[in-house]
């Protein structure tokens, strides 16, 4: 990271944490904020968060590693998560998977070269009655079939 970017990030973190009086309860909202804006939480940001909230960096790292929606490594701007749990699997997850992989030329677990899309599996989304389901960024799509899935991905592409 450039020094300028680092300074900006520090300022942002301090500003955000000041709303919470620099209490450690600001940790989750702060991490979500950084994740949303930068699509990952770099180690520099983790240490700044720890410094501002007066906790240890390893505790911040522990929290990030606990939540699937927080990442410490860079990912794409859009994250597509396809449910892999048994109900969706039986409802035809595999066809969706193959269709998406063909459409994007990308395997699950990978990020496109232009950092646009990351494909991932997820565990149950609670949409078992409407499977197969996937979640693109914050939006859930249900009752997928290959055409519908490809159409959704085209929109974000």
């Amino acid at each position: 990271m450039l020094v300028l970017e680092k300074n900006n990030l520090t300022e942002e973190i301090e500003l955000f944490a000041s709303q919470y009086d620099f209490h450690r309860t600001a940790l989750m909202p702060l991490l979500e904020y950084i994740q949303e804006k930068y699509h990952h939480i770099p180690d520099f940001a983790q240490q700044e968060v720890a410094r501002v909230l007066d906790i240890h960096p390893v505790e911040v790292y522990g929290v990030i590693s606990f939540y699937s929606f927080l990442n410490d490594q860079p990912k794409g701007r859009n994250i597509v998560r396809l449910c892999r749990t048994i109900i969706c699997d039986m409802a035809g997850k595999c066809q969706i998977e193959q269709a998406i992989e063909r459409e994007l030329g990308l395997k699950f677990g990978e990020t496109s070269k232009d950092q646009k899309i990351t494909l991932e599996f997820t565990n149950c989304l609670g949409m078992c009655d409407q499977g197969p389901a996937m979640i693109v960024n914050d939006r859930v799509y249900t009752k997928l079939d290959p055409e519908k899935a490809c159409a959704i991905l085209k929109e974000i592409k």
Binding site: D43, Q46, Q47, I55, H56, P57, V58, E59, Y61, G62, S65, F66, Y67, D72
Partner: peptide, 25 residues
């Protein structure tokens, strides 16, 4: 490391069956 000594270099990382003790990053 965290409570007794307040050094903070070890913490439980990950979740569920993948939990392990590790250092920062």
């Amino acid at each position: 490391c965290i409570d007794l000594q307040e050094v903070g270099c070890l913490e439980a990382i990950g979740r569920g069956a993948e939990t392990h003790i590790d250092t920062f990053m």
